[in-house]
Nucleic acid binder design. Structure first.
Lengths: 249, 249
DNA sequence: TCAAAAGTGTTCACCGTACACCCATGG
DNA sequence: CCATGGGTGTACGGTGAACACTTTTGA
């Protein structure tokens, strides 16, 4: 095993002259790598995020994103999936890497770099187990509490990304139950974009995407007339997730 | 100092009962964190990237992005700036974090996570020093060589981001010399988007952004008539960099 | 019969796109 | 005088945005 003072110039020259095979970057600093998940959900009250209460010092009692550390033999995507599963029992959902946060003192306990992920889940499918088995709790995005470290900044970042995603992917649907009404879909997009949308324009844009199946079933809860339920055409939906896609709302 | 088996559940419960202040996440794995820079440049031959020849095994003789390791007391943005400066002498340029790459075996020497950055520089301003003092070399993006590790994938990713950035920021200008012709600007955008643009439409869109100053000077090199040189209106330009901005080409 | 939400089309303004000709100059 | 690149304007179609009335039915 060979050790060098620093990588880059030193290593390059030393090795060039001796033609030695490099088999470690031993002298480079190693750091803790955390993964934090911004988990969005949606229900009739609006757009929400899932938080846990930090139960140890420092910052005990404050709310925090769900997070954990990357393991040696794991990639970041897998760590995000593992951490989400551990805290919520949820898997197989939409997740996307957001950004790496690396301010020196962002975590007062120890120098830690954090890679944030954001995830979309539908609350209805998972809420019961969540509340019962885990210490996680849903908060309205609009009035999220103060979070530890730089988590508020991650959240802001994630909301921006989520807004952008609405124009790029049919991402909103990840947040709804299997069957949903047009009104729910509309309100979801309104919550994400935090602006009002015109019902007629919205519906015609959505229909032009051609990814919805209008069911024969009606939801009778919300009105006397009842409103049709919709579901995704899974195949067309997945195609849109992969291919280019534009939706201006 | 207190040690725990793993962070997450174990730590949470142990500490809760004893009300001990946590001052290290000692048992969590630490990893090497690299920073790799995709550096775009532009000249009359088109869009280019700056690469260095890896001069030690493994992968000796192959081309590589410019990279290095994050130091303990440095944030990622600073590392990217430091690494770029070390290899090129260039600083004060546009840089943006791209993505964290973490496949287990992406670096055969040792487990390394890499955070990629992309940067835009104008070749004319820096070329002389670059070629003389450093082992870096410009390659046409269109026929970039095979790169080590997952660097080709980073490059693809960076090109996609750069294309998107053209619609979000007046980013192309970072790549041009201080004074430039409309034709140069057009060709830059054509190179980035790798498609032909209509000269008249392009010019009117650019003019509508209201960030250019038409100089009294002409470039007589390219034609008999000569073509006007332009420069940025720095203030308006910076405002556009910060604020929302849309440019569909 | 009325309250409450569902459902449905049209018009207008703007923007992106396609497209062609004259200008100035050096050789 | 002519070859070369520079510079300019218009017409069309599509899309986003604004906008209002009828339908259904349970209470």
């Amino acid at each position: 095993m060979i050790y060098y003072e620093t990588f880059t110039e030193v290593v390059i020259f030393t090795v060039k002259k001796n033609k030695i095979m490099l088999n470690s970057y031993s002298s480079a600093d190693k750091v803790l790598l955390a993964v934090d998940c911004i988990i969005f959900g949606f229900d009739k009250e609006g757009l929400k995020i899932l938080l846990i209460k930090r139960d140890f010092e420092p910052e005990k009692g404050k709310w925090s994103l769900i997070g954990g550390f990357l393991k040696k033999d794991e990639k970041l995507d897998s760590a995000a999936i593992r951490i989400l599963d551990r805290y919520t029992g949820i898997h197989d959902i939409y997740m996307e890497q957001l950004h790496a946060y690396s301010d020196i003192d962002r975590d007062p306990v120890e120098r830690t770099i954090s890679v944030a992920y954001f995830a979309l889940i539908n609350i209805e499918n998972h809420n019961a187990e969540l509340i019962q088995n885990y210490e996680a709790q849903w908060f309205s995005v609009a009035n999220a509490p103060k979070l530890i470290f730089d988590h508020n900044s991650m959240l802001r970042h994630a909301i921006r990304r989520l807004r952008y995603r609405t124009s790029t992917k049919p991402v909103g649907f990840e947040l709804l139950p299997e069957k949903f009404t047009m009104r729910q879909l509309l309100e979801l997009y309104e919550a994400i974009l935090s602006k009002e949308l015109d019902k007629r324009n919205f519906i015609s844009k959505i229909n032009s995407l051609d990814i919805l199946i209008k069911l024969d079933e009606k939801d009778m809860m919300s009105s006397r007339k009842g409103s049709y339920l919709y579901a995704f055409d899974k195949e067309k939906y997945d195609a849109k997730l992969l291919n280019d896609f534009v939706l201006n709302l």
